[in-house]
């Protein structure tokens, strides 16, 4: 490509002619994402108060090994070294975590909020060098679709958790159908996570975006259009589902600790 003659020198960090409060959006991103990562990490290491009755915190689902009745394969296996910090969440949380970390929307948001690359549109940057996503480590963002596969699997598991949250055990040990506030919280979490996942750019590409002549593939075309509808609100789904998954964990935790009461609706 043709080189350019002299250009205006890059602006200093934060230098801009913008008049609006350009720093508000990256600051909010920093605060919310930072708080979420902090809370999720703390909650994952607790290994306690992650179930209440039929409810299982989404941070701990699926519980592969653990001490609750929700565990798929029973208690912590002996082959896991004792010196390693263990919690059911630590085994599974990296997958949805990395799905969000490599998400196209979040990438743009946290590059601004955490790395100031750029701090905001048309605002000077702190660094002169720039690699983008062409080199290690950010070239690894290209594996996003593999975390998508796990996220789709987790949606099925979370849906089954909602189903289980409809069945309450009474004092005599009998199971009864019911709906508690916790059931609604877990259901809302699954709906919001589904909306976020179905709008994923990688999913949109895989189900039909890669095809140039969609008219020859009506099923893929329908899937592509559906994904596109979710994709248009991807940012809103991303934030709403982030709040909800943290709140769902908090709700189960508070109920388990006896701080909040889970009201039965049915």
């Amino acid at each position: 490509m043709q080189s350019l003659p002299v250009l205006a020198p890059p602006r200093r960090f934060g230098q801009t002619s913008r008049r609006d409060a350009w720093w508000v959006q990256p600051a909010i991103t920093f605060l919310i994402l930072g708080s979420f990562v902090g809370y999720a990490t703390w909650a994952a290491f607790q290994d306690a108060h992650y179930t209440y009755g039929p409810y299982l915190s989404p941070f701990y689902s699926p519980e592969l090994w653990g001490s609750s009745p929700h565990a798929w394969f029973g208690a912590k296996p002996g082959w896991i070294p004792g010196w390693l910090p263990f919690s059911p969440a630590l085994l599974i949380l990296p997958f949805p975590g990395l799905f969000r970390f490599t998400c196209y929307y979040y990438r743009g948001a946290y590059y601004k909020g955490f790395w100031a690359d750029p701090p905001s549109c048309a605002v000077g940057e702190p660094r002169k060098s720039y690699w983008g996503e062409r080199r290690f480590p950010l070239i690894l963002q290209n594996v996003h679709r593999y975390f998508l596969y796990f996220a789709l699997l987790f949606l099925l598991i979370l849906a089954s958790d909602v189903w289980k949250a409809l069945w309450f055990t009474d004092a005599a040990g009998a199971r009864h159908f019911g709906i508690g506030v916790g059931t609604l919280v877990l259901a809302a979490n699954t709906v919001l996570l589904s909306g976020y996942t179905f709008g994923c750019h990688s999913l949109r590409h895989l189900v039909g975006g890669r095809i140039d002549q969609v008219s020859k593939h009506p099923v893929q075309h329908a899937c592509y259009r559906t994904c596109s509808k979710f994709n248009r609100g991807h940012m809103r789904w991303a934030w709403a589902s982030l709040f909800m998954v943290a709140f769902a964990d908090l709700y189960v935790r508070m109920c388990s600790m006896g701080v909040w009461t889970d009201w039965r609706i049915l």
């Binding site: 990438r107 690359d117 950010l138 679709r145 750019h201 949109r204 994709n231």
Partner: peptide
């Protein structure tokens, strides 16, 4: 690969073209 999806291009487009979501990211996926 230099594009890090800031979406600033989409924000300033006077024609409202969804540059990042509909053009750049699908190309990145390819």
């Amino acid at each position: 690969g230099y594009c890090n999806i800031t979406k600033c291009c989409t924000k300033v487009c006077p024609e409202g073209i969804t540059i990042t979501d509909n053009a750049i990211i699908p190309l990145k996926e390819r």
